[in-house]
Amino acid sequence: METDTAHPTTGPPDHHHSEITLRVNGKPHTLTVDHRSVLLDVLREDLDLTGAKKGCDHGQCGACTVLVDGRRANSCLLPAVALDGGDITTVEGLGGDGEELHPLQRAFLDRDAFQCGYCTPGQICSAIGALAEAAAGHPSHVTDPGAPAGPPVALDRAEIRERLSGNLCRCGAYPNIVEAVEDVIP
């Protein structure tokens, strides 16, 4: 098990710090975190995983989206201390070993589904989460309210757009992102 010190200036756990363990991209990390630290900052500052981006720091843009225990979440709003024992997947952990890309990463390249790239890790993590939600039968705002609960929701373009609306893209790559997501729908 790797042990990291969250902040070089802070000592052992005290009233304002706690020791936690996070499993990040399959690797366990034991860290002493400032209670004020959100998951996004722990990933970026302490674990040097800068794939998750800080676009707004307030849950208003989705650039920080990662998977927490398999579900997509805005990492900028999650106090790290509250995630002790959690399993985190970031964009860096999506591919296989070595050079292998996740199919959605490949689809983003094929469809030119990004320009500046800053929202991209969040879009990809969010889409992976959204696909799982649809497979689990979760409805969205545009799902027919009369549809039966339970079976997977088929994702047409309106469904993809609605489900990814928590991820802003200022470059306007939306149509290409939707095509990329369509490419990996089973």
Partner: peptide, 21 residues
């Protein structure tokens, strides 16, 4: 032609200004 830095951007390894630790 496909973007040359595309792979870095989709894997999260492209570093932006605040990410040079």
């Amino acid at each position: 032609a496909e973007r040359r830095e595309g792979r870095e951007k989709v894997t999260g390894t492209a570093r932006y200004a605040a990410e040079h630790t």
